[in-house]
Structure formats: C-alpha cells, structure tokens
C-alpha cells in the first residue's frame, strides 16, 4: 500500500495509468490489438505501429517539453517539420534510379541546420525582443509553410534513394528504426538537462523569471537555447516524416503536429504554467495521443468525428490542470480535505 502511495505521487504515474486504461479498453474491444507477429525478422502489430507512428510527435514533444518548462510555447514546430522535409528532399533529389544529388548524410545535416536556425529565430524574438512566445512562433508557423513551399518549388517531391527510407520505415534488431532515434534524443536530452544544472535553470526561469535573474541566472540565454533546441527536434522529426512517406509536401508535412505534441507534453505532466518538466511523461503522452487515434480508427469512427473525440480528451486534461475546476469538483463531492 505504501509503495502504491509513493508511486502515485510520481508525476509519471497518472499518464501511465491513462495509457494502461486505453490499452485495457483495446484488450476487450479491439480484436487482435495486442497480437505481434514476426515477419521477415521484424515485429509487426498494432502496438508496434503505435510506437512507430508516434515517433515524429515524440521527437517534437522532447523539444517542446523544455520550451513549455520555461512557460513558453512553440507552435511553429509543425512548419519546421515541413521545412526540414523540404530541404532534405530537395538535396537528395527525385532521381528515379535513387541516386542522391548530394550524399544523404550531408542532406540530413543541412536540413537539421536550417531547422536549428529557424528555432534560433524564434529564440531571438522571445528572448531578445521580448515578444510573447505564442506570437513569436505564430510568425514562423505561418511563414514556415511558405518557406517549405518555396523550398520544394510548390510541388510534392518524391524520393527513390533507398537508404534514406531507413529512418522512417527501416528496422533494427526487429524494431522500427525511428524508435532508436527517439530513444537517443531523449537519453541525450535527459543527460544534458539532468547531469548539468541546465534542467534546474530551465525550471527556475519557468517558475519565476525575475527571481532567476536576481539569482544570477542568464534567463535570456536559457530562453534562446530552448527555442533553438525545439527547432533541432523539429528538424529531426522532419527527417523521419519525410523518410516515412519518401516524399516532401510543403503543404501537409507535419500539419497540426504542434498541437499533438503540445497535448503530449501536457498529458505527460509538464504544466503550461512552466516549471518542473518530465521528458518521459511527454513520451507517454505522445503514446496516449497515438493510441487514442489508432483506437478510434480501429473502431471505424469516421475521421471528422475522431477529431472531436481527441478534442474532448484535450478538454478534460485542461480542466484537470485548472485548480479552480478541481476545487469545484472537490466541492461538489463534498471533499473537505482537498489540498492546495
């Protein structure tokens, strides 16, 4: 009992419970949901698909977790995904024989570099000019689509260079390759934020920027850094997205991803009010979002209604985050021991 109590206090506990509830639902109502087969040495099945499909959102969520921890937001990541996809596609080129125009690693490096620059632009607007994060990143959210279109000459570029397909479609040791990318990024981010004081500084800036400045922390550089990092994550996500469909579509690549990623971060326990952040929570959050989507489609719910269901989940989560609402509910049930 005591173990359960201390477990339930860990932030990661409730997102995992939510995921487990969704899974249980599927266990009973979706036939063969958990069946995993081995074909050609790879694992196949719904669960594997969920993890694979969630990868681009997970990658975005890692960057957004740090941004949101500073009480900021980055709604331009979906557009940066499109830019990154566009750049890498143009540099590899649509040669039907699959001969890349430039070496694939260079193309990928260039796409990520451009994405980091885009993130730095956001960081500059927020930290140096003092623009509100939602407005600052809205600019690139809108302009970024245009940039992506210009990059691909307003056409959908198809790729035939086989090795590039590894990122989004390939397998390694039986598991989708993209899972390893996610794991590597999260591990690296966790190391950098938790083995140095960076994580503490990010949280301090998110909780109380004035006090952080007074304590000798350079809040501006921290802010600049997290937006640049969010750009980096979006760039990597863009590579995976492009590789999955072997094409770059400036209009639709990563469309609406920023909202799914924000939802994942929030579901994972990082508050939009800034402060404490939970990288693993964000990953679980992304899995919840993806499982929800898969479940809805598995049930044959039409796509237009699927969005409504997801919206309902967002609503419930937001309400649960609001102290006023929780107090109201607690009052309704006559609970007096409700703690602040």
């Amino acid at each position: 009992m005591a173990i359960l109590k201390s477990l339930s206090r860990a932030k990661i506990f409730w997102p995992i419970v939510a995921l487990a509830v969704l899974m249980c639902f599927n266990l009973f109502f979706t036939p063969n949901f958990f069946r995993v087969e081995i074909k050609e040495g790879h694992l196949y099945g719904n669960v594997i698909d969920i993890i694979k499909n969630a990868s681009p959102i997970m990658l975005l969520a890692v960057g957004l977790t740090l941004v949101i921890a500073t009480k900021g937001i980055d709604i331009s990541v979906g557009s940066i995904v499109a830019i990154s996809a566009g750049v890498v596609a143009m540099l590899i080129g649509g040669d039907l024989q699959g001969v890349p125009k430039y070496p694939i690693p260079y193309a990928m490096g260039a796409a990520v570099l451009v994405s980091v620059l885009a993130g730095m632009w956001n960081g500059m607007l927020v930290s140096r000019i003092g623009m509100q994060p939602i407005i600052a990143t809205l600019i690139l959210s809108v302009a970024g689509r245009g940039i992506a279109m210009v990059t691909t000459n307003a056409m959908i570029v198809w790729l035939y260079a086989k090795p590039f397909a590894l990122l989004g479609q390939g397998y390694f040791l039986g598991l989708p390759f993209s899972i390893y990318i996610v794991a590597a990024l999260v591990l690296l981010t966790a190391l950098v934020t938790r083995r140095t004081a960076l994580g503490l500084f990010i949280e301090a800036v998110g909780i109380n920027p004035t006090a952080a400045r007074f304590a000798g922390i350079n809040a501006k550089n921290i802010l600049f850094g997290v937006y640049a990092f969010s750009g980096l994550c979006a760039g990597i996500s863009g590579l995976v997205v492009c590789s999955t469909v072997m094409s770059a579509d400036g209009n639709n690549a990563g469309l609406g991803y920023e909202l799914s990623a924000i939802l994942a971060v929030v579901l994972g326990g990082t508050s939009l009010n800034g402060g404490k952040f939970y990288l693993l929570g964000s990953l679980v959050g992304a899995l919840i979002v993806q499982t929800l989507t898969t479940t809805i489609y598995a049930f044959g719910v039409p796509p237009e209604i699927a969005k409504v269901v997801i919206a309902m989940v967002v609503l419930v989560v937001s309400l649960l985050q609001s102290f006023k609402f929780r107090a109201m509910v607690a009052g309704f049930f006559g609970k007096r021991e409700f703690s602040v």
């Binding site: 004081a197 503490l200 500084f201 949280e203 301090a204 909780i207 109380n208 004035t210 006090a211 952080a212 007074f214 304590a215 000798g216 922390i217 402060g275 404490k276």
Partner: peptide, 19 residues
Amino acid sequence: EGIFAELSIRENIILALQA
C-alpha cells in the same frame, strides 16, 4: 523576486551558487 515556490528548499538554496 526571491523564492521559487515549486522548487525544493535544497534547490532554492544552491541556485545562486550553481549560477
């Protein structure tokens, strides 16, 4: 301008030294 309410006492104490 001083306290970080949601950080632990330990983190509040070491923050300036860390900076």
